[in-house]
């Protein structure tokens, strides 16, 4: 039972973070493509901005890993 709950917790940690990242990337991506249509030289910056929210899912991954490794024994 406890292991199951830990698994759900870990899943939520990474899943919710992934949703948040996806939401942020969708907004940034659509704005970024709009900007690129006008100024193709901004490609690097758009990639950079697009990649920024990925930290959220990486932190979610870190929390999920901690739940499994530290609490799951």
């Amino acid at each position: 039972m406890e292991i199951g709950l830990l698994g759900i917790g870990a899943g939520l940690a990474i899943g919710l973070a992934a949703l948040a990242t996806g939401y942020a990337q969708a907004r940034i991506g659509s704005a970024g493509i709009g900007a690129l249509a006008e100024k193709p030289e901004l490609t690097g910056r758009v990639i950079l901005l697009l990649a920024l929210p990925e930290t959220l899912v990486i932190l979610g991954f870190a929390v999920a890993a901690m739940i499994i490794l530290l609490l799951g024994g």
């Binding site: 990925e54 930290t55 990486i58 932190l59 991954f61 870190a62 890993a65």
Partner: peptide, 12 residues
């Protein structure tokens, strides 16, 4: 700290 943890993506 966030910057360092960001390298976890290599493992992920």
């Amino acid at each position: 700290v966030g910057n360092v943890l960001s390298y976890l993506r290599i493992a992920a």
